[in-house]
Computed example of a mutant assay.
Amino acid sequence: MAPVITGFDYRRVPVADGVSLNVAVAGSGSPIVLLHGFPQTHLMWRHVAADLAADHTVICPDLRGYGASDKPAAPVYPKRTMAADVVALARALGHERFALAGHDRGALVAFRAALDHPATITHLACLDVLPTVDMWDVMSGAGAAVGFHLYLMAQPPGLPEKLIAAAPDLFFGHFLDLWAGDPRALPPDVRAAYLDACRRAIPSIVADYRASAGVDAEDDRADRAAGNRLRMPVTVLQQDWGAALGYDAAALWRGWAPDLRHDTVTYGHFMAEEAPADIARALRDLLARTPAMDAP
């Protein structure tokens, strides 16, 4: 049996077009939705979620195409669609406004939700990403080799799915091993659960990544050209990839978020599992900031 977040209630919630999300919910108080990254599931939030549930309603879904959520066949999974799933999920659970935190792929969904639904998202936290369009802009030269999977999964349907399916545990396990600053943060049962979930979701994971090279980047460019910005308090925590790849991450984020707190951390990529007390504290600090309802 796959691990679960102890003390959380599990359910399946319909969100759109026959798609239902697997979600874990606990706590009471102001709501916060926590979105997982790649190659993980909602389980990555298990420590932070338990901490925050002491005084918040905490909602931890598996994203469309991941974990135990539905995986509709499609060549791309636009972040706009995945963001709409999250808003529909929160509303189905009785929350018209909520805070949103995402890690990795989940942070890109959270970013899109905050741009598309500014009256709904009260606070935003993004862990260890750049906005999609900025990510592609800074990936160049030999340094871009670190993101080889971005280019692989951007290819047309067929090739990436077949290549990954030939050795899924090797492929997904590579990232779990490479990106973990502290491998002890991913105990064997959790690591096995992640690999099993990914093994069952290869086409939809590729569809998520493929969207980033196309429609997601286009949506970001359109928002940037229109001058759209994040209207809510924003916290960004990330490793110092900018030093390695030659960009200023904080400056890139300031272009999107007038009310920004940006911190460079020394943890590995899986920071919610490696330093959960610090991440929970950062989220509590974010939630204590006053939303700017009429921000431009």
Rank of each mutant, 00 (worst) to 15 (best):
residue 1 M to H: 11
residue 7 G to A: 04
residue 10 Y to F: 06
residue 11 R to T: 14
residue 12 R to V: 11
residue 13 V to E: 01
residue 14 P to Y: 05
residue 19 V to Q: 05
residue 20 S to Y: 12
residue 24 A to F: 11
residue 32 I to K: 00
residue 33 V to M: 12
residue 35 L to Q: 04
residue 41 T to Y: 10
residue 42 H to I: 01
residue 43 L to R: 06
residue 45 W to K: 03
residue 46 R to Q: 12
residue 48 V to T: 13
residue 57 T to Q: 08
residue 59 I to C: 01
residue 69 S to P: 06
residue 75 P to K: 12
residue 77 Y to Q: 05
residue 78 P to Q: 08
residue 78 P to F: 11
residue 84 A to D: 09
residue 96 E to H: 09
residue 102 G to L: 04
residue 104 D to R: 08
residue 108 L to T: 06
residue 115 L to F: 07
residue 125 A to K: 03
residue 126 C to E: 08
residue 129 V to Y: 00
residue 132 T to G: 04
residue 133 V to G: 08
residue 135 M to R: 06
residue 137 D to G: 15
residue 137 D to Y: 03
residue 139 M to F: 05
residue 155 Q to I: 00
residue 158 G to R: 05
residue 159 L to R: 10
residue 160 P to A: 02
residue 163 L to Y: 07
residue 167 A to Y: 05
residue 168 P to A: 11
residue 168 P to Y: 11
residue 169 D to R: 14
residue 173 G to Q: 09
residue 175 F to P: 00
residue 177 D to G: 12
residue 179 W to N: 12
residue 190 V to I: 14
residue 192 A to W: 02
residue 195 L to I: 13
residue 195 L to A: 07
residue 197 A to E: 06
residue 211 A to E: 00
residue 216 D to L: 06
residue 220 D to H: 14
residue 221 R to W: 11
residue 224 R to S: 02
residue 227 G to A: 09
residue 233 P to E: 03
residue 237 L to Y: 04
residue 239 Q to G: 13
residue 244 A to M: 08
residue 248 D to E: 13
residue 248 D to L: 09
residue 249 A to S: 14
residue 250 A to R: 14
residue 255 G to D: 10
residue 257 A to W: 12
residue 257 A to M: 07
residue 268 G to M: 06
residue 270 F to K: 02
residue 275 A to R: 15
residue 281 R to H: 09
residue 285 D to A: 15
residue 294 D to V: 12
residue 296 P to H: 14
